[in-house]
Write a protein that binds this DNA or RNA. Structure first.
Lengths: 219, 219
DNA sequence: GAAATAGTGTCTGTAAGACACTATCGG
DNA sequence: CCGATAGTGTCTTACAGACACTATTTC
């Protein structure tokens, strides 16, 4: 095909939508923004943007997080392309869905100034532009990640103790895990800080009770 | 965002490339076509095409298989979007990679008239437009499919006996499987035709030797 | 000592790997 | 009977689930 053929056909607009997930109050949540203008104005949706000329998809995802949610510095991953011509009433738009997972602390400012709000992923109803499908795919993918690997998205502060890691995995998966089985599964994939151990002063209520735990780092 | 904003920015061309896999001579192979014209003329590559206005990605994948490879009637699945701006020297082109898996009989005509040729996936070298990455992702995805599920892409003729199914899985995975373990894993996911059983006349050399085997169907 | 959490031993059930035995065909 | 393939029994190993015991801390 000659170069000129590239321009014979109309081309679609390409959008990037990002399901930005985090763990807050022990639950997996997704960050939604309130849309401005247009006929979807005021509705909650995922942050998204149109791809600029020559821009990488991952860069567009980072840009829309920065511009629309005021957060930055993460690692979006592609999920799927949504291509239903009737999906977007503004015209012919392909949406490349992405997922990213970040610490809730990195979202605090944006939540406080109203740029975004967190919604429990189990309580997501219908969203504009079929965004609820993107959330579902994102949640499935991230939960699969957390089934076999210790904190693959780096949500936890290092070093950490096993119960902190287990709390995190339980929050992401939305169900309880067995204490002993979880340890035996994860320990070979962690670097044990043999030297150190601290009282679990990090625990709830400021109380520090119980035997001190071994500290670990990711490999 | 207003409708008019959609047209303010330049838009990329969107291509669809398909890794069409099949099993031939006991090996997993990918169908390649020989490119016509352009500076990549004569090189082998995956069949691909540009997305037409209002067209679904899956339909574009089917269209390019029909137009360029002369085969039709399958079920392409999305793999990944390749967005490196330097990937395609013809301009700004996003490629949505797809995978499909079909019976080699459905490709016979196209092979005979030279529309496409089959290459063992283990022998793929560099291809234009980074197509070897697409092949790798396609092979990984299909092999994952065949690890746990009996013939998920429907390559086998029904009804079939267990050794035919195992031969197929061994061809796709590119390694031997255990006879007894394979049966115990797959049998619960199949519908056993209790009534029927035929001599394995389907076997090599026209010879029909050994105990007749139970016939199965997919659920 | 009581309460709380960390770490580990161990029993049971399940499933894969490996091997071998029996079953049923053609010749 | 032999050769060949189908189907299954069983031993071993590994590991998840489940339970309980020991260990180390605060109060």
């Amino acid at each position: 095909m000659a170069v000129s053929d590239l321009h014979k056909y109309p081309r679609p607009s390409v959008a990037v939508d990002v399901a930005l997930l985090t763990v807050d109050e022990g639950r997996l949540k997704v960050a939604l923004i309130r849309r401005e203008g247009g006929d979807k104005g005021g509705e909650l949706s995922l942050p998204g943007t149109f791809l600029h000329e020559g821009e990488r998809l991952a860069d567009a995802a980072l840009r829309c997080l920065s511009d629309k949610a005021g957060v930055r510095g993460f690692h979006p991953r592609q999920l799927h392309v949504f291509d239903d011509p009737k999906r977007d009433d503004r015209g012919w738009v392909l949406s490349v869905a992405h997922v990213d997972v970040v610490r809730v602390e990195d979202l605090r400012k944006a939540i406080e100034n109203g740029s975004l709000q967190l919604i429990d992923v189990e309580l997501i109803g219908n969203l504009p532009y079929a965004h609820e499908e993107i959330v579902q795919k994102a949640v499935d993918a991230v939960r699969r990640n957390y089934l076999e690997t210790p904190d693959p998205w780096g949500l936890i502060e290092q070093p950490f103790i096993m119960s902190q890691l287990r709390d995190l995995h339980e929050s992401v998966l939305g169900r309880q895990l067995q204490r002993d089985t979880f340890r035996r599964q994860m320990e070979p994939m962690l670097q044990g800080t043999e030297e150190t151990a601290v009282p679990p002063s990090v625990r709830v209520g400021g109380e520090a009770r119980g035997r001190p735990a071994r500290l670990y780092r990711r490999n």
